[in-house]
Simulated assay, not measured.
Amino acid sequence: MTVAPSAPPRPQALPELEAKPKGVFERVLLAVFIAVPLLAVAAAVPFAWGWGLGWSDVAITVLMYTVTGLGVTVGYHRHFTHKSFKAKRPLRIALALAGSLSIEMSVIDWVATHRRHHKYSDKEGDPHSPWRFGSDWKALTKGLVWAHMGWLFDAGRTSPAKFCPDLVADKDIRRISRVFPGLVAVSMLLPALLGGLITMSWWGALTAFFWGSLVRVSLLHHVTWAINSICHVMGEEVFDSRDKARNVWWLAIPSFGESWHNLHHADPTCARHGVLKGQIDISARLIWIFERFGWVHDVRWPNAERLAAKRIS
């Protein structure tokens, strides 16, 4: 692995933030949603050893992780943020709902933040660059913590009106963003409901909540945040992205292809991030399936000439 050698200047406050910052209650609630699932991950091994892990727990966890994870990668990221493809209205709504169940911000807030990230990637104004504090090992360690989750507690809130007016103008997406707290409740309670119905027991509901809600949310969040942190510091650089974005192969499957981050920053609107031989990109395969069913169109698949022009010789 290679480590990016230099760093841009530390970001300063920009006028592209909402007038009303995040309040104390919101940041405390955020801390709870980070800490509690993380504690569940820490307790996962002794919990499984002492009380077992049923097949229904595994099935529910895998299902919820896959649906919500692809809701983020295919929906929030490749469709809503970068417009890598156009989707028919029912699928567009389904992707917004699936992404919301990941509990990674409402669709409008997520897209606004990510578009701001791409506008200033690893430069002044990037909301979560690991190079924020400098390039020596102490500054970079601090920056990795910031890029991974510290930025979430920053009081500044990216302005949707400035970064995603297209979504603000979409009444369906606006409604889904408005009911985000309710979708958080659905995401947390649905695994318990499924587990209870499958096993017809309260214990089945409890274990499904532990694995399918707490553990699943924590794993998905940390995989997503690792794209912001790890993939901007270490890994392979194949294409000229004009920032620090790198490829981290061991995150490819849990991130559904998002960790082929170098190509993504070199060609952000491309629907496939893993464009080289052996680069597994589950999200791109799902988009391909949607295209075959006629549910999406105008997919921006990799262009050989464009890739060759960006390839580092």
Rank of each mutant, 00 (worst) to 15 (best):
A4G: 00
Q12F: 11
P15V: 13
V24L: 15
L29R: 10
L29D: 10
A31M: 05
I34T: 00
A35G: 04
V36W: 04
P37G: 06
L38K: 03
A44K: 00
A44V: 01
A48W: 05
W55A: 08
D57S: 11
V58K: 11
I60Y: 11
V62S: 08
L63C: 14
V67Q: 07
F80D: 11
K88R: 14
R89K: 15
R92N: 11
L95R: 02
D109E: 15
K123D: 14
P127D: 13
P130N: 07
W137H: 10
K138N: 12
V145T: 08
W146R: 06
G150K: 06
W151F: 11
L152Q: 05
D154E: 15
T158K: 02
P160W: 12
A161R: 14
I176V: 13
I176N: 05
S177Q: 02
S177E: 07
V184R: 07
A185H: 05
S187F: 12
L190E: 13
L194F: 07
I198A: 09
T207H: 14
T207K: 15
S213C: 13
S213N: 12
V215W: 12
V215I: 05
H221I: 05
W225T: 05
S229W: 08
I230S: 07
E237V: 06
V238L: 15
R246D: 09
G257S: 01
T269Y: 13
H273E: 13
V275M: 06
Q279F: 11
L286K: 00
I287C: 07
I287Q: 10
F290P: 02
R292T: 09
R300A: 12
P302F: 04
P302N: 09
E305Y: 09
A309M: 00
I312T: 09
